[in-house]
């Protein structure tokens, strides 16, 4: 599975599940970049078949609604949607 990696300050594992066409996803990705933290992201809409199914199972574990953006911090906290304050608080 090809996660794109963005370098930055290591605040633990941050994974962003996003859609390539979704503007809220783009804003979230931009926000993380601006915060300067290290994270990885994947555009789920660009995956096909079993690869997509397997990633969607991971998304569903954290966010049963399977909506985007879904962000998982340190394998313990999930933030759904572009929630600036929540993200900033979680990454303090």
């Amino acid at each position: 599975m090809k996660f794109e990696k963005v370098e930055g300050v290591d605040k633990g594992k941050i994974v962003l599940y996003a859609l390539s066409t979704c503007v809220w996803c783009k804003r979230t990705k931009q926000f993380l970049s601006n915060l300067g933290v290290k994270f990885e992201y994947i555009f789920v809409d660009l995956l096909q078949g079993t690869e997509r199914d397997s990633i969607m199972k991971d998304v569903e574990k954290w966010n049963p609604r399977c909506s985007f953006p879904t962000m998982v911090i340190g394998d313990s906290k999930c933030i759904v949607g572009f929630k600036e304050d929540e993200i900033r608080e979680a990454l303090k």
């Binding site: 859609l19 066409t21 979704c22 503007v23 809220w24 789920v44 969607m56």
Partner: peptide
């Protein structure tokens, strides 16, 4: 700027699916 990006998303979906699916949902 926000709206134009959404419009680009609609066009991207039209190109790959043949219909303008919501850019913010997994079609």
């Amino acid at each position: 700027a926000f709206t134009m990006e959404l419009v680009e998303g609609l066009l991207a979906n039209e190109k790959r699916f043949g219909h303008q699916a919501c850019p913010c949902r997994l079609a």
